[in-house]
Amino acid sequence: MQVQKSFEPKSNGAGTLYLVATPIGNLEDMTYRAVRTLRECELIAAEDTRQTRKLLTHFEIVPQKLFSYHEHNKAASGPELIRYIIEGKNLALVSDAGLPAVSDPGSDLVRLAVEAGIAVVPVPGANAALSALIVSGLPTERFTFAGFLPRENKDRRAALESLGQLEGTLLFYESPHRIVKTLEAMKEAWGPRRAALARELTKRHEEIARGTLDELLELLNQHPPIGEYCIAVEGESAEEAKERKDAWWQELELEEHVAHYEQEEGLSRKDAMKRAAADRGLSKRDIYNALLD
Rank of each mutant, 00 (worst) to 15 (best):
S11Q: 13
K242A: 14
P9K: 03
P63N: 13
L160Q: 03
K242P: 00
T169F: 02
L17G: 10
E264N: 15
E228F: 05
A247E: 10
L112I: 09
M1L: 03
P122N: 01
I86M: 08
V123R: 07
I134E: 11
L138S: 00
L170R: 05
Y173N: 03
H223F: 14
I85H: 09
V35R: 07
A119F: 04
E200V: 08
N12G: 06
F59C: 01
D48H: 04
R204I: 13
E207I: 08
T140Q: 11
L149P: 15
I82N: 08
G211M: 04
A75L: 02
L201N: 01
K10F: 01
F148R: 05
H72E: 03
L166I: 02
R53I: 03
E60V: 02
G235N: 03
E80R: 07
M186I: 13
D279M: 05
N73T: 01
D279A: 12
N12H: 06
R285Q: 12
E264I: 15
V94S: 02
L160M: 09
L219K: 14
M186T: 08
E28F: 09
R193C: 03
A277I: 15
F148Y: 14
R33W: 10
Q165W: 00
S175D: 00
R275E: 14
R151W: 00
H260I: 13
K245R: 14
N127T: 10
A185C: 03
S68A: 13
K74Q: 07
S6L: 15
E42W: 00
K89N: 00
V120D: 06
M186L: 13
I179R: 00
M273W: 12
P150K: 09
F7G: 00
I82W: 08
T49D: 03
F172E: 02
I287Y: 07
Q250M: 08
A277S: 14
F145M: 04
A247N: 08
Y18R: 05
Y84Q: 10
H70A: 09
S237K: 12
R39A: 08
P79I: 01
A132S: 11
L81F: 06
R157G: 14
S162A: 11
E240C: 07
G211T: 11
G211C: 06
R178H: 13
R142I: 11
E87S: 11
W249S: 09
T144M: 02
E152L: 06
I86V: 05
E207N: 13
I179G: 02
E200R: 06
R39I: 00
M30K: 06
G168H: 04
R285W: 07
H72T: 13
R111S: 01
V121H: 12
R36V: 07
T49S: 02
P122M: 02
L56A: 01
E206C: 00
P150S: 05
A209F: 04
R204N: 12
G227P: 05
L252F: 04
S103L: 05
P79V: 07
A272P: 11
E188F: 10
E262H: 12
A129D: 08
C230P: 04
E47M: 02
Q2I: 04
I134F: 06
K74E: 13
F148K: 04
R36Q: 13
P150G: 10
K242Y: 10
A126N: 13
R83S: 06
E47Q: 03
R285A: 15
L217N: 11
S77E: 14
G88M: 01
K154Q: 14
A113Q: 03
A126I: 09
P176W: 12
